[in-house]
Structure formats: C-alpha cells, structure tokens
Amino acid sequence: MAFFPHLLLALLEGTVAAAVLALSALGLSLVFGVMRVVNVAHGEFFMLGAMLAWFVAKMAPGGPAVGFLAALIVAPLLVGALAFVTERLLLRRINYDPEATIVATIGLMFVIQQLALSVFGADAKAVPAPFSYRIALPWFGFSGYKLFVVVASVALLLGVWWVLAKTKLGLIMRVTQFDRETATAFGIPVNQVYSAVFVAGAALVAIAAVLIVPIQQAHYLMGLDPLLMSFIVVIIGGLGSIKGSVIAAVIIGLSDGVISIFFSPTLASIIATLAVALVLVFRPQGLFGVPAR
C-alpha cells in the first residue's frame, strides 16, 4: 500500500481507538470527578459488559442486531447492579478513603477475573457486529460498524456532558464534587449521589464494552488494557475533568493508531505511558485539571 492510503487507514483506526478510549475512560473520569476515588475494577466492569454482550448475543433469537440491542439493555443493567452492591458493601463501609478504595477494588478486580474465568472459560469469544456494511474506499474497505462506534461514542459523550452541564441532576453532582460537606448542609443526599454516580460510571463502561466488543473479542483478561488506557487518558487530561479526558483520548487514540499501524502496538503503549510521565513532570495536575484544593 502507498504511503497516503496507509496513513489514512492509520488515522481512521486512530479515530476509532480515540472513540473507544474516550468511551471507556468516561465512566472512570465521572466517578473520580465526583467521588474522588479510583475504581481499579473499572476494567473488569468493562470485561463483564463484553462477556454479557457475548452471552446475550448467543442466547438471543433472530440475528446479531437483536442480540446487540438486547445486550445494550442487559449489560448496563447487570453491571450497574453489581456496581450498586460494590458501592454499598465496599466503598461506603470504608468511607471512600482513596487508598483503601484502591486496595479493595484491586481485590475486586482479581475476584471478578477469576469468576469470569471459571464461568466463561479462558478462550476469546467473538461477537458478531449488528450489521456488516463495509465502506468501499478506493484503496481498502473499512468497516461501517467501526464508524458507527465513533458516532455512538460522540453521542454518549455529548449526552453525559448535557446531563452534567444542563440538568438539575448534573448540578447536584457538580455541587457534591465541589464540596461534600457544604452539599450535605444544603440537604443534598450525598450518599445517594455517590451511589448513582458509581452505578452510572459502571453502566457507561458496560455500554462502551457492548459497543466495542464486535471490534475486539471478549476475554476474561481484556479488562486490564482499557483500565490502563483510561488511566493514561484521565491523568493526561487531568483527573476528574471530562473535557480533558476527551481531548486526551483524541490525542492518545490518534497517535496510538498511527504508531500501531506503522510500528507496533506494544511500542504505542510504551510511548503513551511515557507521555504520562512527561505530562506529570511539566504539569502535575494534568492538561485540564485544577490543582487539588
């Protein structure tokens, strides 16, 4: 392939990677933004979403499209329910202490991984895309579903932004984020807000997984990659800043796509990690973060 089509393919793949990244980091960013805790089991929620998508697609009668739509409903509901239980039984009991939360969610990560291994087995599972339209470019064909993922993730990002910026629910979340005690004093049920945010974060990553799994494959160890990539994105963007996360996702996604195609995916990951180091050296709070108060 000549250089230009090659670059075009790299940029297209990069755009898809950016959308995937932004989508999987969104939930983590939201949870950290409001609750100031890092959920290390975030990647496992992603994996569960993907596994459920595979399971539903296998069970559902009438083709991949039906399975896909069913999974879009079932996966976020079940993963959200698990997140609800986690929040109640784990995070609330340790009073959202940042360190204890990290340790506990690491534990949860291992537990979910092992259970997924025992229930679903160790083999990778392919999930068919809901439609198989290929866009015929002069040099190569490109999966229409991948572009659909880009569109869907833009829509989801806009939706979350709209909720946060324009609705009363978003206002309550932002108040809780700004100052937990003052929010309590003004009669905001902070505990319920935390519950809702944690569940919403998990549901979002489950939706992301259902969207993404036809491009990748479901596997019980697949959670680590989105977790680390989400970390990269939220650190570079600034912990808790959704705008920052999205911009960082675009930068990292595009460079990831280009480096992966021209060199190797492993090299792309190493470079992305080193980018985090550079950002921290020159701007410890991230590109769009505000220094801790």
């Binding site: 340790v103 506990a104 534990g107 291992f110 537990v111």
Partner: peptide, 10 residues
C-alpha cells in the same frame, strides 16, 4: 488474593 485484599481492607 482478591478476597484477602477485600477482607483486610474491610
């Protein structure tokens, strides 16, 4: 390992 971590923290 996972269960031990969770129980210890709790």
């Amino acid at each position: 390992v996972g269960v031990a971590l969770i129980l210890l923290v709790l």
